[in-house]
């Protein structure tokens, strides 16, 4: 069994003469190793002798490459490595967030929020105070108190 495990070393011709002799002696009695070697030899011969007529594609490929390569997105992709593209995207996001949170933008936003809260507070107080007004005379007194 241990000798079978050395099949790859034998096949890859990575054995010295003594190891090779030992494996070849093993092969004569090991049907598995013999069958594996025969199959691989036959497969490799079949695949190697397959004629693969090759068309000349060079002109067509180069033409297409240059046609495709002139589009702006291909040019951008060709310049950016994936890592750089990620870094560039992150930088754009950071810049966008920074611009969005500029002091000017922040003040306007905080002031609007403050005004909304104050308006709400006024409305609540007004409702509380108005709830005490039940008659016309109460209303006259209330208006005088409010300074109207």
């Amino acid at each position: 069994m241990r000798t079978c495990n050395r099949f790859d070393n034998y096949r890859d011709k990575e054995m010295d003469a003594a190891q090779r002799r030992e494996f070849e002696a093993h092969r004569t009695v090991c049907e598995d190793c013999r069958a594996k070697e025969t199959l691989l030899d036959n497969l490799v011969r079949i695949l190697k002798r397959e004629s693969l007529p090759m068309p000349d594609l060079a002109g067509r490929i180069a033409y297409q490459a240059f046609q495709q390569g002139s589009s702006w997105d291909t040019l951008v992709i060709s310049w950016l490595r994936p890592g750089l593209a990620f870094a560039a995207l992150t930088l754009v996001l950071v810049l966008f967030s920074f611009v969005w949170l500029l002091p000017g933008n922040g003040t306007i936003s905080a002031y609007s929020e403050y005004k909304t809260l104050m308006d709400e507070a006024d409305t609540i107080n007004l409702e509380e105070r108005m709830s005490q007004v039940e008659t016309n005379s109460d209303l006259v007194i209330w208006l005088e108190q409010e300074g109207n």
């Binding site: 069958a35 025969t38 199959l39 030899d41 036959n42 497969l43 011969r45």
Partner: peptide
């Protein structure tokens, strides 16, 4: 045929 030992040409 693939299981048979062949000459240098293979099957």
């Amino acid at each position: 045929d693939l299981a048979q030992e062949n000459d240098s040409e293979g099957p």
